[in-house]
Amino acid sequence: MIDRIASLGRLGLDIVTSFGRSGQFLAGVLAGVPRPVTGFPLLIKQLYSVGVLSLAIVVVSGLFIGMVLGLQGYTILSDYGSEAAIGQMIALTLVRELGPVVTALLFAGRAGSALTAEIGLMKATEQLSSMEMMGVDPLRRVIAPRLWAGFIAMPVLAVIFSVVGIWGGMLVGVDWLGVFEGSFWGNMQSSVDFVDDVMNGVIKSVVFGFVCAWIAVYQGYDCVPTSAGISSATTKTVVYSSLAVLGLDFVLTAVMFGDF
């Protein structure tokens, strides 16, 4: 019995320790102000691998989710004779919730796991160590550009996701099911507010991007440099990022939309 309590306490301490370590790590990464001359090309390269390469999956998922929303929305709303509200429904769901959240989950799976594995392998093959021995701080050279890239790419991807989703919804709703196009857009425009809905969605995705990138690079940097260690770090990245995104989404939604 005592053993169980002790192990519970140890688990708690471990969790607190890892929070402390990742916070310290983040401070170390952000402390170094990126030098524009050397830092910029590195950032571009990471934006390419983190952002551009995630574009395909984001666009395809966005399209399908929008189309499904269109179909489902139509079936439900047509019972009440208000199919025209389909535009409003699709846009609000995508812009407020699904855009940021689903993009973040896809991002964690596509880019986050890749970041973790890459950094973990660099650690295992002593590339990080050798960089340090060459007088180059790997936190600034390797970690910082990846963190910033995730931070920047995420809102861009989320916004693209929402737009493609709305377009997919329109494809189904207007072109296939025959909702009048004018009321589709009109309903949407009268109910979606730029600051309250669109910008709050963007803020959400900025937060998610930061958290996902942070978890991914930290897991990579902190992993046990063996093949088993890297694989478990990659799994942890996806699991932790997804949980963090869903949990934070609730908190952010409560703060942003919870007051009425």
Partner: peptide
């Protein structure tokens, strides 16, 4: 320390080339 390391070279067991 980083300035001192510029005066040091180290050859790692695995080579540690940037892949």
């Amino acid at each position: 320390l980083y300035a001192l390391r510029e005066k040091m070279g180290m050859l790692f067991q695995s080579g540690a080339l940037f892949t």
